[in-house]
Simulated scan of single mutants.
Amino acid sequence: MTHRPPRPYRVLAPALAAGVLLTTAACSDGDDSGPDRADTTRVSSSPLAQASPAPLTPAGARAALVTEADLEDDWNQVKNAATWRDSLLVGKVDVADFLTGKADAADCQKLLDRLYGDDLLGKPSGASALTGFEEGASRLLYQVAAYDRAGLDSSFSWLRSLPVKCDQFTATDDSGAERTVQVTERSLPEEGDARQGLRVTVRGTSGGEPATLTLDVAAVRVGTDAITLTNGGLDGVDGDSTEQAVKLGTARLKDVQAGRTPSADPGELD
């Protein structure tokens, strides 16, 4: 049976303004190399150096995970989320479905493989943490991880291309059973530095009966860290929970990056 699944800117601005004034004063005196100019450089660059967040640690990744209190409705946290796999996501993409052939088919195959393997953005380059929640027959899988910036940018570009490249295609499992897969764009709250949402629908059979797996898929980048989630199951998707997880999850990650402890009460963020 298929399982279903910094605020530094206000401080920084006056310092930068002071640096500009000092520099202007030095230039007006005709002295481009004196001690005043050197001191100005130190004043304006020091806050910038402090603005970069520290690398994500394993403890920080765990602290940035959403909790039951962050999600609406009756989601319950589980202990076995790392073992979740949905067999409807297993299949070989039919290249014949694609006008542009193997290139687009390979991108769609990567989507299925990464959804099944819980590595939507590829393998993390640093710390990571994962948790999962159940509500009835629906599942919400949530991950926080650190990535290589170039690889992260590439993964987001790939995600943005999928609603066009993979709008509808066929995948066949080892028994020859076919699944019809549809991928559309899913809007997300304006959180983080970049974001991409998808709605993935897989129609096939489960236990010999017709079945439709529907998933919200979301990724949000905050610096070189990112959150990813999949939410849904055979009974559909609770879209409000997707948006809640994105909003509060991004806030939690920003708190961790700033050296703060995320609030245990999501109501404090309102």
Score class of each variant (00 low, 15 high):
Val66Met: 04
Val20Gly: 05
Leu159Cys: 11
Val256Ile: 09
Leu12His: 04
Arg179His: 15
Gly233Lys: 01
Pro8Lys: 06
Pro47Ile: 00
Ala81Gly: 01
Leu188Asp: 05
Arg114Thr: 12
Glu134Pro: 01
Asp73Gln: 14
Ala15Trp: 10
Val200Pro: 02
Asp118Lys: 11
Asp97Ile: 07
Thr230Pro: 00
Thr184Glu: 13
Ser241Leu: 03
Glu209Val: 04
Glu72Met: 04
Ile227Thr: 08
Thr224Lys: 10
Gly19Lys: 02
Asp70Glu: 05
Gly197Trp: 02
Lys165Cys: 00
Ala25His: 05
Gln77Phe: 05
Leu248Gln: 12
Gly60Ile: 06
Leu140Phe: 09
Arg139Cys: 09
Ser52Phe: 15
Tyr116Ile: 01
Val95Cys: 01
Leu48Gln: 02
Ser161Gln: 14
Val202Cys: 01
Leu253Phe: 04
Lys92Val: 13
Pro8Phe: 12
Asp118Met: 09
Ala49Asn: 10
Ser52Trp: 14
Ala18Trp: 06
Val20Glu: 01
Val237Ile: 15
Leu229Asn: 01
Met1Tyr: 06
Thr2Lys: 02
Pro58Asn: 10
Pro262Arg: 01
Arg195Met: 03
Gly19Asn: 03
Asp270Asn: 08
Val222Asp: 06
Gln50Thr: 07
Arg179Phe: 09
Gly101Lys: 06
Gln196Tyr: 07
Gly259Pro: 01
Val181Glu: 07
Glu191Thr: 09
Val90Pro: 00
Arg186Cys: 01
Leu65Val: 07
Pro8Val: 06
Gly236His: 01
Asp31Val: 08
Asp107Ser: 15
Arg62Leu: 11
Ala251Gln: 13
Leu112Gly: 08
Cys166Ala: 14
Ala251Val: 14
Ala82Ile: 13
Val222Ala: 12
Asp32Ala: 12
Pro189Val: 03
Asp167Cys: 01
Asp148Ile: 05
Asp240Met: 06
Ser44Ile: 15
Trp75Glu: 00
Leu111His: 08
Asp235Glu: 11
Ala219Leu: 04
Asp86Phe: 05
Ala171Met: 09
Asp238Ser: 10
Gln50Phe: 11
Thr41Val: 13
Ala17Phe: 12
Glu209Thr: 09
Gln182Arg: 15
Gln168Asn: 14
Ala146Asn: 04
Thr224His: 13
Arg42Val: 12
Gln109Asp: 07
Arg85Pro: 00
Ala211Trp: 01
Gly122Ala: 06
